[in-house]
Design a protein around this nucleic acid. Structure first.
Length: 481
RNA sequence: CGGGACGUAGCGCAGCCUGGUUAGCGCGCCUGCCUUGGGAGCAGGAGGUCGGAGGUUCAAAUCCUCUCGUCCCGACCA
């Protein structure tokens, strides 16, 4: 039995929801704002978002996307132009009705997503085939009036990125949709160390106004799935509604083919729920706000030397772009600091005490497995980066094993119900494609189809887990956040 | 939005059922001394309009009504 060092939080294994709430507040990632469903992202939490932005933005720019910024408000008439879209979002829209004391002639929606306002601009900007493709992304805030909220996972206001592209052909739009899906998958798996299942959404689950929606789905430690990113092929639904046309090489007017796609601050919730343990957070090194914390263990005659050494190590690590922090606080004992930084998820700790000074070494302690590694001070700096990469991989592998262990191949409904009830996780099975079966399974078990698999399976045909009819869709079911 | 639970110091709670001086406790916080290899010790100190608004009463943290917020379980959504 592993000794439990951090005693301030409810163990994750004991009460997952409570653990989540306690850890995000004690680690100072967020605090509740005085309005329902709203949160303050505190500096330590916002640092994660900044890393996510930096790493994903780089990938988007590498693939030709550029950033822009569109207005927060959307005139009601614009929002109403695409019928399915407005129907999907109407219940969640916050409205501005007054400017000062004066009532507005037309209500303004606080954007629940920006298709409407962006498409209205694209209609002005796009005239010729030479203008295409348009590959614009924006980092923005969004408001959706939610009934049930949880910090990071579902809040009334949240931060995200939303890409909106326009293309000459349907093929190009589909290519873009899938390219983004693979960028998301690559980013989430490599930088956030979270393995995901990528696939297509069913009609029931797709984005309001999309032709097709794809998503990546991650499995949380409590066995529920979390949609971690979505990419939509909008077809010509919006270009027809907003009249976005270009003249092609043959001088024919054509409607553009569009995509939109996004990931949000919800990803932070995923990182917490996938990697966290009984002692608190465990951040993957690539996004950890602090990657290495240096804790001195002062003893009277050594104190000055130890502090100097600690500061020196911090400086050297920063030189090689390691996010290092020397914890010079004198009011806390080393043991207290260990627990504190473990709760806050710092991937690697360096301890320096009198015994280490005598041996000209330090002790490294990994957050992922708590392994203690004595290292000579001479070679310390060069050891750090490879070790951080190893921790990154180790966290990914732990999450991957969990995903594998909790993905159940099932082909009868009784077993399906039993697993959803007791074990949760993903259920991989066949579905006939009929929405009745999908609805009934949802009603009876609470599980929904997260995605239709895109893997090239040998066995591409089976029987629907619900009705038993011939089925071609291999799908992943789960209870979802 | 339905069902349940809860709101008392920064955090965790007791007090409420059965109304009655100055509302307690642990941790944290501040000052000083002393300590520091897994959440140290001693001494002193600060901190509360009991979520908010009404009402009942001579008197309300306590009883009643409304309201705001949080958590859990469902239905809806990133």
């Amino acid at each position: 039995m592993e000794e439990r060092y951090v005693k301030e939080i409810t163990p994750k294994s004991q009460d997952f929801s409570r653990w989540y709430i306690e850890v995000i507040r004690k680690a100072e990632l967020v605090d509740y704002a005085p309005m329902k469903g709203m949160m303050v992202i505190r500096p330590y939490g916002y640092a994660i978002w900044e890393k996510i932005k930096e790493l994903l933005d780089r990938r988007l720019k590498e693939t030709g996307h550029v950033n822009a910024y569109f207005p927060l408000f959307i005139p009601e008439s614009f929002l109403k132009k695409e019928a399915e879209h407005v129907k999907g979002f109407a219940p969640q829209v916050a409205w501005v009705t007054h400017g000062g004391d004066e009532e507005l002639e037309e209500r303004l929606a606080v954007r629940p997503t920006s298709e409407a306002i962006i498409c209205s601009m694209y209609a002005k900007w796009i005239k010729s085939w030479r203008d295409l493709p348009v590959l614009i992304n924006q980092w923005a805030n969004i408001v959706r009036w939610e009934k049930v909220t949880r910090p990071f996972l579902r809040t009334t206001e949240f931060l995200w990125q939303e890409g909106h592209t326009a293309h000459a052909t349907e093929e190009e739009a589909e290519e873009e949709t899938l390219r983004i899906l693979s960028i998301y998958k690559d980013f989430v798996e490599n930088d956030l160390a979270i393995p995901v299942i990528a696939g297509k959404k069913t009609e029931r689950e797709k984005f309001a106004g999309a032709l097709r929606t794809y998503s990546i789905e991650a499995l949380m430690a409590d066995g529920r799935a979390l949609q971690a990113g979505t990419s939509h092929n909008l077809g010509q639904h919006f270009s027809r509604a907003f009249n976005i046309r270009y003249e092609d090489k043959n001088q024919n007017l054509q409607y553009v083919w569009q995509t939109s796609w996004g990931v949000s601050t919800r990803l932070i919730g995923a990182v917490i729920m996938v990697h966290g343990d009984d002692s608190g957070l465990r951040f993957p090194p690539r996004i950890a706000p602090i990657q290495v914390v240096i804790v001195p263990i002062p003893a009277n005659e050594w104190k000055e030397k130890i502090y100097k050494k600690g500061e020196h190590i911090e400086k050297e690590l920063k030189k090689i772009s390691v996010r290092a922090h020397f914890d010079s606080r004198e009011e806390y004992t080393p043991g207290w600091k260990y627990s504190d930084w473990e709760m806050r998820g710092v991937p690697l700790r360096i301890e320096i005490g009198p015994k280490d000074m005598e041996k000209k070494q330090v002790v490294l302690v990994r957050r992922d497995n708590r392994e203690k590694i004595p290292v000579s001070q001479d070679v310390l700096i060069e050891k750090i980066s490879p070790l951080l990469e190893e921790i990154q991989k180790s966290l990914y592998n732990q999450a991957l094993n969990f995903l594998k262990e909790n993905t159940h191949n099932v082909n009868n409904y009784e077993e399906f119900k039993e697993i959803i009830e007791n074990k949760r996780g993903f259920i991989k099975t066949f579905w006939c494609g009929n929405q009745d079966c999908e609805d009934k399974i949802k009603d009876e078990t609470g599980a929904s189809i997260r995605v239709i698999s895109m893997e090239k399976e040998e066995k591409s045909e089976g029987n629907c887990v619900y009705c038993g009819k011939k089925a071609e869709n291999l799908v992943y079911f789960a209870k979802a956040y």
